[in-house]
Computed example of a mutant assay.
Amino acid sequence: MTWTDRRILDLFGIELPIIQAPMAGSTTPEMVSAVSEAGGLGSLACAQYTPQQAREAVQKVRAATSRPFNMNFFCHASPEPDPARAAAWHQALERYYTEFGLDHSAPPPASGRAPFDADFCTVVEEARPAVCSFHFGLPEPSLLDRVRRTGARIISSATTVDEARWLEARGCDAVIAMGLEAGGHRGNFLTDDMAAQVGTFALIPRVADAVRVPVIAAGGIGDARGIRAALALGASAVQMGTAYLFTPEARIPAPHREALRRAGEQETVLTNLFTGRPARGILNRVMRDLGPISALAPAFPTAGGSLAPLRGHTEPRGSGDFMSLWAGQAAALGREMPAGELTRRLAAETLKSLPVRPA
């Protein structure tokens, strides 16, 4: 058997309709190259790097594989400083500083992720990846035009039909339909209303009906059953993130890996405590204490600064109480194996379970 919908395969020049999600802070060049070498599309999370670090990461990927890969960037607007809100957030965490004997009066370290800009665009022009993907919309038109001139296929995440149409109208070659089940940061950019977010398997057919470009399904897909369902609903490929957190190539701390192993016993919820923007992760102490969504949390991506000393104190002691434990709702389906093997096995299991079409 073979894949009947080849739109994404032909568009990206890959063999398998499986894209490894770009997970800033967890993805490594080793993961990216392993997935691409296996026939899928590895995705380098460039938001975790400086431009020079991104160049070095690309060199590592290229040294390990000659196959297509994706470079991913954030497209958020850097927030204006809000000292009052930052102070109120820091004050809300004072009790934890007291509990652990930490100096609450010391200025919290800066935190954040760099948005796509001219310097990152230069890196893309130098690297000329097969695919360039974006989160939180798209960069300004002049930068997007520069990316397009490299020959890279351009994709981005949509959490609603309106966002999917917006992306298609601005020249995206494919749209990622990101359902509410997905781990990590929501990709929303036209709305902040989390109550209106849609689940993956309701979103896929709506987006597929609304746009002409191929659709990539993301969120709550953890095994061949999910891949098969996504393809049946109109997706041409899937993007999977949490499944790859179980691989040895993932760069995650021990408390995060242990939480993933116990994912079947725990809930995942949307929270803004760690960055200031809604993201799905495994419930932990600070989320229970403060509520997973807090109006006090400073704007993305600055909320993590005041939590950093608490994480720095508790993580070496084996605790994930003050760190982001990003995971999607299908985390309990995760299997521990190398990223390349996982990619090939997911594809083989999907093909085996697809219905046989008459000749």
Results as ranks from 00 to 15, higher is better:
2 T>C: 14
4 T>L: 15
6 R>K: 15
16 L>A: 09
17 P>H: 05
19 I>S: 11
23 M>D: 06
25 G>Q: 06
25 G>L: 06
27 T>Y: 05
28 T>Q: 02
28 T>R: 01
31 M>F: 08
34 A>H: 06
35 V>R: 00
47 A>T: 04
51 P>A: 06
62 R>N: 07
63 A>G: 09
64 A>I: 10
65 T>N: 10
72 N>E: 07
77 A>Y: 12
82 D>W: 10
83 P>I: 03
85 R>Y: 07
96 Y>P: 10
98 T>Q: 15
102 L>Q: 01
102 L>S: 02
114 A>G: 13
118 A>Q: 12
125 E>Y: 09
127 A>E: 05
128 R>Y: 04
128 R>C: 12
128 R>I: 08
131 V>M: 09
132 C>E: 04
136 F>P: 04
141 P>H: 02
145 D>G: 14
146 R>K: 12
149 R>P: 13
149 R>D: 13
152 A>S: 12
156 S>P: 04
158 A>Y: 02
164 A>W: 02
166 W>R: 11
166 W>H: 12
171 G>W: 08
178 M>N: 09
178 M>S: 12
182 A>P: 04
185 H>G: 03
186 R>P: 01
192 D>A: 14
192 D>N: 14
192 D>H: 13
195 A>I: 10
205 P>M: 11
207 V>C: 08
211 V>M: 03
215 V>F: 00
215 V>M: 07
215 V>E: 00
216 I>V: 09
221 I>N: 04
221 I>S: 03
222 G>H: 09
226 G>F: 06
229 A>N: 08
235 A>Y: 01
235 A>H: 01
237 A>L: 07
245 L>K: 05
246 F>R: 06
246 F>C: 07
252 I>S: 11
254 A>I: 10
254 A>L: 14
255 P>A: 09
257 R>A: 11
263 A>K: 05
266 Q>F: 04
268 T>N: 10
271 T>I: 07
271 T>N: 01
277 R>P: 04
278 P>D: 02
278 P>M: 04
289 D>E: 12
291 G>Q: 05
292 P>W: 07
294 S>E: 07
297 A>S: 08
298 P>F: 00
301 P>M: 00
302 T>C: 13
307 L>G: 00
320 G>M: 01
321 D>K: 08
322 F>E: 00
324 S>C: 13
327 A>Y: 00
330 A>E: 08
333 L>W: 11
336 E>H: 10
341 E>L: 15
341 E>Q: 14
341 E>D: 14
343 T>K: 11
347 A>K: 09
350 T>S: 10
351 L>C: 07
351 L>E: 06
351 L>H: 09
355 P>M: 10
